[in-house]
Amino acid sequence: DTWDMPTPYPDKTFHTQNIIEFAKDVEKATHGKLTIKVHSAGSLFKHKEIKNAVRGGQVPIGEFFLGLLANENPAFGIDTQPFLATDYKQAAALWKAQRPVVEKLLGKQGLMVLFSVPWPPQGLYTKHEIKTVADLKGLKFRTYNATLERFAKLVGAAPTQVQVPDIPQAFATGRVEAMITSPSTGANSKAWDYVSYYTNIQAWVPKNIVVVNARAFHRLSKDEQAAVIKAAQEAQTRGWAMSKKETAEKTAILRENGMHIITPSPELMAGLKKIGGEMMTQWKKDAGAQGAAILNAYKP
């Protein structure tokens, strides 16, 4: 059997590299009875379509950014809440608490969770140094979802919408002046071309998730099912290690190319965490019982 697997990010991204390894492991463990053909960089389905393509059985397996589903249910987006879980240890604890809820919600759509791997912790990219929250006031701040919009407003920044490919030009022309993203995205888009400061605020640790269509999974033999589950567990462990390595490597690349890598001042962090707290209060209201279940289970 051959499984087509759409993934949103390019081949060189560590998430895709990890998935390619996963595919090899499955093929080896099933002695070639199940092969997974990875279609990277959205070449089969666009990012936004991947989840529904797996749900509808158009492909048996796929990867996507978990936060993309935050509008469906806030529980999917808890890993994009600012300053709730900010390092890998906390992120791991959060995923442990979040996983049962995500499994239940996706289970209703006929999807099974295989594994989830985080992006590096998110930092702040700006043209000038940011020493306190007040320095963000009035800056044009890139937002792409409701959480970031609220965050921008709370720090006093001016939210602005910029599509990913437009980012360099938008910084060059002043259409955007600050953004929060991972060192990976910054290094891959050569952020030093348009900004000088990277402040390592570790705002949140978002994740990608790999899901499989439950019907397709149950059509596999018991041995094949076991092989997939085992390879998925290994992929999750390997992916987290790759992510940590990625953080160090990509931050080094930013530094080598002349960007100032700033450790945030205590004042800045105190101000940001206060805002993070306010946002959590709102999130709890929105997320209801499922949100409470995650937060009760979360032991950072």
Binding site: K137, G138, L139, K140, F141, T143, E149, A152, K153, A157, A158, P159, T160, Q161, Q163, G174
Partner: peptide, 16 residues
């Protein structure tokens, strides 16, 4: 921005 040094942040939500 030119007059007061800071932007207001006027956006049409999800306009893209």
């Amino acid at each position: 921005t030119l007059l007061t040094g800071s932007a207001i942040g006027l956006t049409i939500p999800s306009y893209a």
